[in-house]
Write a protein that binds this DNA or RNA. Structure first.
Lengths: 220, 220, 220, 220
DNA sequence: CCATAAACGAGACGGTACGTCTTGTCTTTCT
DNA sequence: AGAAAGACAAGACGTACCGTCTCGTTTATGG
């Protein structure tokens, strides 16, 4: 966390920490991130302001931890994201399933508001952005890398593909629609992403050997 | 614009408007978006605060207009984005060229700071977000749609592909890396995106072992 | 006043100034000086804190002005102190009358609490102390000087007496009892002060020409 | 003292008490009374805050005790005030000597700052004020009462004079100049006070024109 | 001669107030 | 009438202390 150097962890009041997390999430959900204030969190949590400043360095920092805590608690074991992307042998189906779950999560208001707030703060505040990336995004990314590598071994993904880049075809378009209102989000949409990405946009040549494969010209 | 109902446009001081744009962009560049204040803009522009509140409704709104103005001026004719994506017949090459130009722009500090600030504000403030989408993103998106449709007509993109979705493979991963620090941005990266997207991640003609996968040329 | 350099007096809100004076005096009377806060004054006056900080530099400063204003208003013309100490020709009677009026004032709670608070602050904060001296004490002192000089001319006070020092016999003991709880305050007490001071503590010699006048020895 | 009910004196740490006294006096001297804080005293003394709150009830209380302790130590035997005002038979000379010593003390910064601070606090906080009166002022007052009574018996002070009131002519003007900046303090000043007070302000024997006014020697 | 209970240092806690900063509105003055 | 200047009510900022409340740790008998 981007937290302060931790004055004396053992003496720390667990009750206050919980109350602060709860208050922060509740306020962000109720009045939005910009109108959530540290004073407001402190008042709502029944806590002195100093108790917040003692342990966190900014509103974004409080919220980041609160959100992480929420994820940890809510997920129980299983967590916010599954431990791994399932591998049924059918890559397309597995990806579609995971993306549908992500769609659900993006539409769950408990997650959406704080998570959007953090993302926004991260865009403008690089420190928070990198923290957000490390803490929330990277774990999910690694799951995709693993699944794609397995698919490569199974011959379902071309061997020369870099999975770290390939996975962006699945998550980046979704992320952009969510963050920048560039389009609606639905199961149909994510399913389409999977199909397009795996199959490619250019026409496949196998069944039309005389057609124009790829985008280069073909001569006899 | 998200501007106020415009009291009486003809009487408006052109000099003040210019000064406000300049001050807003300069301040965002110097101290960052969150520490840019309306008071600061007014002071720097040598303008009364009311003159800002009279014509714009928020800091984001001022900046959005200022940025648009900057784009219009800087681009001269040609503008921030080209009028159209070139069509040399080679879709991959055309896309790579456009994306390289986009990479350059994302790294140009004159554009990067205000545009990142606007994007961030847009993430958290839906009104600004939609405005940003409409004003800055949609025009660019339409260019991609046009080019992809032309490619479809030329048989270089499968006819069953929705260009509106397909184009996200080119811009969304780049946007995500830029906004969320999920990875570095380079020509090589955008080139790879084009190749992966057009060719697909799955092996070509898995069921026609004699075929040539990838998007290289195929000969008899 | 110990006030700030006065940003722009003409634009100043008279209503706010009045409300601040009233709130300050009311709060000091109700909860005492130390528990009177600038935030409290602002809240009670229905005024932003900045409006106080804009025009005054401290709590003591606000209170000093408020008290001066109270004196000016309450006294109507006539003011807190009479324009001059009456001169009936009977110095003792005149002084006793003035001191009795002072006793009344010291016991009037409207004046006592703020005035005690200011005096206390002045003891510890030299700037306030000097301001208090200049603004509140000195005018009264000058009245005594004038009356004593008149008495000197009338032959009722010895010519070699410095009135500036002599007057302290009348006001200092009263001030000390009031400030330091060194004794009760009453008409009888102040009457006694006048008699003792004028007559001297040492026995008078006129009626005992052979006695020991003053405290020097007398030899034939 | 205004101290707490004393939990268990025998176990009390002498070292802490000393350190607290020293820290309190040092801080008051260095940064002034208002900016001396209990936290500061504790930190400087290397003591927990609770150790202060356990034994004293307020900052003023700590300082009062610290000051008393300082007086006791510094004075050695002899103390802050002499055990008694000398009685050489010459009242005026005795009083002048004592007052000169008082002037010295008021100008000794070791005493001045804490003692001014206590006096100020006493003005506004009646409890402290009365404590200050009882502990510091009253003993000195009694010495004056004793000396004046002796003078009455020796016929140097009129028998109808109340010594308790008379002594205020000597100490109150001095106290007021010191506390309220109403004038400078010097030997000449206190000498004058004594002369004026003993001799009276009014001309001697106004009704016996052949008498000799003042306290000079009288010859046949 | 330990045991035990206090006083101790340390410092986190819920609070209050500080003095500063910015917001968005309102008002005054000048052009 | 529009604009600059800027005062205003409001309220959050981050800091400093308040006085209370645990925490272990001395320490100093007293059983």
């Amino acid at each position: 966390m981007v937290k302060k150097p931790a004055p004396s962890t053992p003496r720390r009041s667990e009750r206050s920490r919980r109350a602060i997390y709860d208050a922060a999430l509740a306020l962000v959900a109720e009045v939005g991130y910009p109108r959530t204030t540290i004073e407001g969190i402190a008042a709502r949590a029944g806590v002195g302001k100093q108790t917040i400043y003692r342990w966190w360095s900014s509103k974004a920092d409080v919220l980041l931890e609160a959100f992480l805590d929420l994820s940890a608690r809510t997920g129980g074991d299983g967590g916010r994201e599954p431990r791994a992307i399932p591998d049924t042998g059918d890559l397309a189906a597995d990806l579609k399933a995971v993306l549908r779950a992500t769609v659900d999560q993006l539409k769950d208001p408990r997650f959406e508001i704080p998570s959007r707030a953090l993302a926004a703060e991260g865009v403008v505040n690089e420190q928070v952005g990198r923290e957000y990336m490390t803490t929330l995004l990277k774990p999910a990314i690694l799951l995709y890398v693993d699944r794609l590598r397995a698919a490569q071994e199974a011959g379902q993904v071309r061997a020369d593909i870099d999975p770290r880049i390939a996975l962006e075809f699945f998550i980046a378009p979704l992320a952009q629609r969510w963050l920048q209102y560039t389009g609606p989000i639905s199961y149909a949409y994510t399913d389409t992403l999977v199909d397009y990405a795996l199959g490619g946009l250019a026409p496949r040549t196998p069944d039309v050997p005389s057609g124009t494969p790829g985008h280069g010209s073909v001569g006899p």
